[in-house]
Write a protein that binds this DNA or RNA. Structure first.
Lengths: 160, 160
DNA sequence: CTAAGATCGTTGATAGCTCAAGTATACAGA
DNA sequence: TCTGTATACTTGAGCTATCAACGATCTTAG
């Protein structure tokens, strides 16, 4: 109790330590990653996340609710985030013929270009900061373990 | 490319998938955890984090810079966070006899009580949402893997 | 002893997100 | 058909954390 190795001392030995590492690793990597993304491309991590989802979606379009559920943001969070992407001209609003409540977010040509231009460097950053710390097998194992964590609660549709 | 399993489809097969899972898991668990902590004890995840660090520190006191480094916040972040804890009466400021620049954050008796009162339920929540998804060995393995991730950059003292 | 540079901490402005509330539309049952 | 409830989205207020700039103090080299 007189020693001082702060963040480890506290939870040493307990299962808690794993959680703390998880938290810290997230904070550190995320900080670095978004700093780079911001500096090089003027994008937030969430911006990028949305861009990816749209890029790979059929017709590069997704309902706002669905977007919210997959990137784990609130409905209002998505509204404001898309505001930004719309102002930048990368995403457009498209209304739905069969349901006047819903509006789609669609990637513009500029948006597609933006994403394609961003992708490589961001993937490289992830590789450097995250993946490179593991061998192939370890990476797989880690992915498998992380995949067991509950993603529920934001998407009530999950129990279906 | 016509299928729709959103968050997985996008990165399927690549190492990226692991990173995405990491991100999503963090968002989901963190959201749940802090909702409970807030509801039951009126604390932020970061508040709690600071409380733990102080609790286990010698004399329940820590310099603000050190606190910042270990919980991975900015200096100014710590200032404002401690503002709150001070207003609530759980933490006090203490100046340093040998260096007028530094000020310590010290846990008050109320703060100690608060932490002890909070601890059990929060640990249980972590256990439920996080640890319970793994066996002992898996937990260890996960912890080991996460421990390899870089925490650097906020603490330049790291290279020493 | 003094000047230059680091370090510790706070503050103003701002970003990104949340919650709560509100509007508008859809749908299901009497 | 009307009524109630669920769903899609937006908006205002507020919170947490950031960055950039600043004042204070310490340290080191001339």
């Amino acid at each position: 109790m007189t020693s001082q190795v702060l963040s480890t001392q506290v939870t040493a030995g307990s299962e808690l330590e794993t959680w703390v590492r998880f938290l810290r690793a997230h904070a550190a990597i995320t900080r670095q990653l978004s700093a780079r993304l911001e500096a090089q491309h003027g994008l937030t991590l969430s911006d990028y996340d949305v861009l990816v989802q749209l890029y790979f979606a059929p017709e590069q379009a997704l309902r706002r609710v669905d977007l919210a559920r997959t990137v784990l943001l609130t409905a209002s969070g998505i509204t404001r985030l898309l505001d930004g992407l719309e102002r930048s001209g990368w995403v457009e609003k498209r209304s739905c013929k069969t349901d006047a409540r819903v509006s789609y977010a669609v990637l513009t040509t500029a948006g597609i270009a933006k994403f394609e231009e961003t992708q490589a460097s961001h993937r490289a950053d992830i590789e450097e900061l995250f993946s490179s710390n593991f061998t192939g097998t370890e990476g797989k194992k880690l992915g498998e373990l992380l995949g067991r964590l509950p993603l529920a609660d934001t998407s009530p549709a999950c129990s279906a």
